[in-house]
Simulated scan of single mutants.
Amino acid sequence: MSPLITAAELRDASAVVVLDATWNLMGPPGREAYDAGHVPGAHFVDLDTELAGPPGEGGRHPLPDASVVTELLRRTGIDAGSEVVVYDAANSMAAARARFVLRYYGVENVRVLDGGFAAWKAAGGEASTTAPADVESAFEAVPGSLRVLDAEGAAEIASQGVLLDARAPERFAGEVEPMDKVAGHIPGAVNAPTTGNVSADGRFLPAEELRERFAALGADGSQPVGAYCGSGVTAAHEALALEVAGVEVPVYVGSWSEWITDPNRPVATGRD
């Protein structure tokens, strides 16, 4: 099954749990956009408090505690057999993080609405301003269903395979750094801005185009591949794009914001 679902497919689906993960790194809060209009029946999920733990030594968006995810699953009625669709405003950056977290904690059937809420509206989908009531399930989140990378694992892939850095070129190069205290990238990493995974309307490029894009960077599955970014959000989008292309990769969840917490870890700059 594709990790993506179209707006038309979602409209025709039944018994699907829909989650709105709309989030903006620089604001305004995603809840405001959700309240202004969302897919009917969609539950809002907050990336900062439900899809990430408190910032600290583990980076700006470490994985949330299992108890937090358990509460999320139970209030939205997700159980072991649920079909889940997650979306955000358009480009699926936050939705990819939501899918990653849910799958890491044991929810198997999770797809991303390709093109997000913008695609839903473009396809004639209705918008609701009513939040659904909480429902109940007995699902318990158990970590470990997906392989993830720590700093050492990321460094190993950077030296022996292809570690993709999903940030913008200027952040990769260390020319600017709006979020973290240190600029640059993990030595040996290859820049693959996640914005290149989608078209102007926020939909993912066709699988063949994504395969060609990643193959040109050496990420064709013939050697170890991993993904990271600033704090583990857009890295999940990179991993999703790679999955669409047919390559399964682990994510370094702590990403750059965790890497730099240890001053002994090396830092590279420049676009090469």
Rank of each mutant, 00 (worst) to 15 (best):
A138T: 15
A141H: 10
V142F: 00
S145G: 11
S145V: 00
L146P: 10
R147G: 13
L149G: 07
D150F: 07
A151I: 06
G153H: 08
A154G: 09
E156P: 00
E156H: 14
I157R: 00
L164P: 11
D165C: 02
R167I: 07
P169G: 12
E170P: 01
R171V: 10
P178A: 12
M179T: 14
D180H: 11
K181S: 15
V182C: 12
G184Q: 13
P187K: 12
P187E: 10
A189V: 08
V190A: 10
V190T: 15
V190F: 06
G196P: 00
V198H: 06
V198T: 14
V198K: 12
V198S: 06
S199M: 13
D201C: 03
G202D: 10
L205P: 05
P206F: 08
P206C: 11
A207M: 08
E208V: 13
E209L: 12
E209T: 11
E209S: 14
L210P: 06
L210H: 09
R211K: 15
E212K: 14
R213W: 02
F214P: 13
A215M: 08
A215L: 06
G218Q: 02
D220L: 04
V225T: 15
G226H: 02
Y228I: 00
C229I: 04
G230L: 06
V233N: 04
A236P: 06
A236M: 11
E238G: 03
E238W: 08
E238K: 06
A239D: 05
L242D: 03
E243Y: 01
V244P: 02
A245S: 07
G246S: 08
G246Q: 10
V247P: 06
V249C: 09
V249H: 09
V249N: 08
V249P: 12
P250E: 05
G254D: 01
W256C: 00
W256N: 01
E258D: 09
